[in-house]
């Protein structure tokens, strides 16, 4: 188990180095950064001085090593657009995105999994058919359209929920949160629903398909033959056997929640990282783009690591360090 974790960690580090390399390349391939810093009328001598001062005349590997060393310490330089350190800009925005993704993921799991179990158990029921048809909407409507429709219904027509921004946040030990007050929570509902709808329907359909598969298994038949209650069979034996694929997909989807958050944040003017990233692209703010790239890669790697560890918790067959004694 330990060997496995170490191996996975090494792989993760390799991934991060590769992403770091790509992020670093941005600086060199998207124009000469010196041009962005010195004035148009600067002389060649001034340019060379600036180049030397910033270490840009060093050989490529040295520059990359310096970038990596800084990045590991969370130092990505100055934002061209905001003129503040990139890490400060991100630190301001990160909580908003993470909170949005967290709420969306919890909603997707808390609603998607039970609906999947229900539709799996009552395959031919009227409610199941209705849910499945409705889930097609979640799968096929693009995020921005769902967001705009939700704003139209709940903000414009009904006026129940705010249509943009984070609204009132509460400062909890330096973390601006929407979840501590009802006013703040109201602001996060619409963006979170928009963001989670696709994942929710995906999870529901996945759990349903897995349940249908597992319910045909011999051990379910044997569990019935032993007289176990339906509850124990469906939620104990069957559901647990569907979890490995569900966790895999959930892990991957949390990654894409962060990615899709860019669109949702734009629709709702949610002051998160996605919005920051979009603005960075508009202004060719390379340090911010590089930092965002590295951060997202880091989050993906962490999620994958957690997913792998969860496999171990769920499926005993993967715990290879306790070799099966086969008589």
């Amino acid at each position: 188990m330990l060997a496995y974790i170490v191996r996975r960690l090494l792989q993760s580090i390799l991934v991060l180095i590769a992403v770091g390399f790509i992020a670093f390349s941005l600086f060199n391939f998207v124009g000469d950064p010196i041009n962005n810093m010195v004035g148009v009328e600067a002389t060649d001598a001034e340019r060379d001085a600036a180049r030397k001062r910033l270490g840009l005349d060093d050989p490529f590997p040295v520059q990359f090593a310096r970038f990596a060393a800084n990045a590991v310490q969370g130092n990505f330089g100055q934002s061209y657009r905001l003129s503040i350190p990139v890490e400060t800009a991100i630190a301001e925005r990160l909580p908003a995105t993470l909170e949005l993704v967290f709420v969306a993921a919890v909603m997707a799991l808390a609603i998607g999994v039970p609906l999947g179990v229900y539709t799996g158990l009552h395959r031919d029921g009227a409610i199941s058919r209705m849910l499945l048809t409705a889930s097609l909407i979640g799968i096929s409507l693009p995020t921005f359209l769902i967001g705009i429709l939700l704003i139209l219904v709940f903000s414009v027509w009904l006026g129940w929920l705010p249509s943009f921004g984070r609204g009132a946040t509460v400062d909890l030990w330096g973390w601006e949160t929407n979840l501590a007050s009802w006013e703040g929570f109201k602001s996060i509902i619409l963006p979170a629903v928009t963001l989670c709808l696709f994942q929710l329907t995906l999870l529901m359909r996945l759990v349903r398909a897995e349940m249908l598969e597992v319910l045909r298994a011999d051990y379910i038949k044997f569990a019935r033959a032993r007289g176990l209650t339906n509850r124990a069979i469906h939620f104990g034996h069957a559901l647990k056997n569907t979890l490995v694929p569900v966790i895999t997909i959930t892990g991957l989807q949390i990654g894409s929640l962060i990615a899709f958050a860019i669109i949702t944040e734009t629709v709702f003017q949610w002051p998160g990282m996605g919005l920051l990233f979009l603005q960075a692209i508009q202004f060719v703010d390379i340090p911010v783009m590089a930092a965002y790239l590295c951060l997202v890669a880091f989050i993906f790697v962490v999620i994958n690591l957690v997913v792998d560890l969860l496999y171990y918790v769920i499926d005993p067959r993967l715990r290879l360090d306790r070799p099966g004694q086969v008589f």
């Binding site: 011999d218 051990y219 038949k221 569990a223 033959a225 067959r317």
Partner: peptide, 21 residues
């Protein structure tokens, strides 16, 4: 009644047991 009064054993012992418990 099942398991209590009447029990049943199936053909394949490899798949009759839930692998996760």
């Amino acid at each position: 009644l099942r398991g209590n009064q009447i029990a049943m054993i199936f053909q394949d012992p490899l798949t009759s047991l839930n692998p996760l418990f």
